[in-house]
Computed example of a mutant assay.
Amino acid sequence: MISVPDKIETPRLLLRQWTPADLAPFAALNGDPEVMRFFPAPLTREESDTLAGRFREGIDERGWGFWAVEAKESGEFVGCVGLHPQPDRFAFSPCTEIGWRLAKAFWHQGLAHEAAAAALEFGFETLALGEVVSFTSVLNTPSESLMKRLGMTRAGEFLHPALPPDHRLAEHVLYRIVRNV
């Protein structure tokens, strides 16, 4: 078993396990139509709590996953950023995905990049992953821009298997980054 830290610290952020206090701000984030515009629909409180529970369980099981992100200075809940194994869902599986979702109040401050860069470093240095992927709807240019800023390269497009082929969000871009050895 790999020894993993209980949190990842960056200059401005903590990536950590989920707590009950995270549920209400996470639900607000997931219920915000602007934050969720590149997802099929905003989440209800129950759906959001279930998702946070799955994230917490994944971290309990593996020691890593989609962490809650906290602003160090204020203690505010920022969103979630992290890594998630995708063993068989996609044609390019097995793989480890990196993803992020931040509350609107924290956009355009470099926080998603800061947290994602720390998650990538953890994936490569602690987990010794050889590659990490990220994907999003072709409409989600802000996330695609972040993938590029993280040093990821475009590896193609695909139709997301959880969406009907004619859904407005079905067409996705796939990005990859490999570990520097």
Rank of each mutant, 00 (worst) to 15 (best):
R56L: 15
E61S: 06
A91W: 08
M1E: 09
R16Y: 03
V4H: 10
E61R: 15
E9V: 15
E76Y: 00
P25Q: 08
G31A: 08
L159V: 10
P25A: 10
K72T: 10
R101P: 02
H113N: 02
P42F: 06
S3A: 14
L127G: 11
R12V: 03
W100I: 08
A116G: 00
A28Y: 00
T153S: 14
F26I: 04
G110V: 11
P42I: 05
E57M: 03
P33D: 05
H160D: 13
P33H: 04
V132P: 11
V132R: 01
G82Y: 04
P25D: 05
R45S: 10
V138Y: 04
A112G: 03
L120D: 04
A91G: 12
F38R: 08
A115M: 10
D88M: 10
E131V: 01
E76R: 11
D88R: 14
G65S: 10
D60G: 04
I59S: 05
I177S: 00
R45Y: 11
K7F: 14
A117G: 06
G53Q: 13
L13R: 12
I2E: 12
P5D: 08
Q109N: 02
C80P: 00
T50H: 13
P94S: 11
Q86T: 09
N140V: 12
F124G: 07
R45D: 13
E9G: 00
F158T: 02
F122W: 13
F135L: 15
S143E: 07
R12E: 06
